[in-house]
């Protein structure tokens, strides 16, 4: 079973200070740490689990700048066989649609039974690339997948809906799944695997190799701004003892205890 996994290197912003840079359209990235997008790491792990079961090859692909190769190498260390970087520096501004078109053009000569992507990237939060790519390739897709049981020809997948409900689908291969977090437990790369992966070559594709002339950008960032406050929070300050004391009093006043 040959699987392509699309991954993205994203800044880790959940616990970091995020500031807008001088252009007003980008954030200051030099102080942030970067890592594989969260749901992509689940997508990769799912591919590795299937490879362990069925054999075959995993190709990881990422549209990104030079440092993305570090992330691709980690993917190689975690079980991917081949890695491709598409030079983001060749393509100006990107959105989910444009990214999917570029990826489509760059995998045209690859064989695959499945393509996995993460269900959302934590930086631009589009949730577009996977489903768009499936449509461009004219293969069936399932998004937000949290369970896969596949044979060579068809796959039973569970999609996660709202309110804890799941949807059981039966799809034919080749197909694309966007993977939701929690489907498995992503592994860390062992040192030996890292050493082997460090020596592997990463295929780099640029504008010349991607012959599609009609790549379109749907959307462009005009400005970034700090979300307006929807509600004025009252911060309870002081030492943990003081702030907790104030809060306990509020509970009391409101009759909550």
């Amino acid at each position: 079973m040959d699987i392509i996994v699309c991954i993205k290197r994203v800044p880790q912003t959940a616990e970091a200070d995020v500031t807008i840079d001088y252009t007003g359209k980008e954030i200051e990235k030099d102080r942030l740490s970067f890592d594989m997008n969260e749901s992509d790491s689940y997508a990769l792990e799912e591919a590795v689990l299937l490879k362990e079961k069925f054999g075959g090859e995993i190709t990881v692909i990422s549209l990104g700048h030079q440092d993305t190769e570090d992330t691709l190498r980690i993917a190689l260390a975690k079980g991917a066989d081949n890695a491709i970087r598409i030079k983001a520096e060749d393509f100006d501004e990107l959105d989910g649609y444009k990214t999917a078109q570029i990826i489509k053009a760059s995998i045209s000569d690859l064989n695959f039974d499945l393509i996995f992507t993460g269900c959302i990237a934590t930086d631009d939060a589009y949730s577009q690339v996977g489903v768009t790519l499936a449509e461009l390739l004219d293969i069936p897709h399932a998004s937000l997948v949290i369970f896969i049981d596949t044979s060579e020809k068809r796959a039973h997948v569970h999609r996660e809906l709202e309110g804890g409900l799941m949807e059981h689908l039966d799809i034919s291969l080749p197909a694309l799944c966007t993977i939701q977090t929690g489907i498995n437990e992503p592994r860390y790369a062992s040192l030996i695997a890292i050493r082997r992966a460090a020596k592997k070559e990463i295929k780099v594709l640029g504008k010349e190799e991607i012959k599609d002339e009609n790549i379109l950008l749907n959307t462009q960032i005009e400005e970034l701004f700090i979300p307006p406050k929807t509600k004025e929070v009252e911060f309870l300050t002081g030492s943990p003892g003081e702030s907790a004391g104030k809060l306990a009093n509020i509970f009391k006043e409101k009759g909550l205890i």
Binding site: P11, T122, E223, L224, F225
Partner: peptide
């Protein structure tokens, strides 16, 4: 965008 820390006009 960015874990809900910023908004973007597109």
């Amino acid at each position: 965008v960015y874990d809900g820390k910023l908004n973007a006009k597109i």
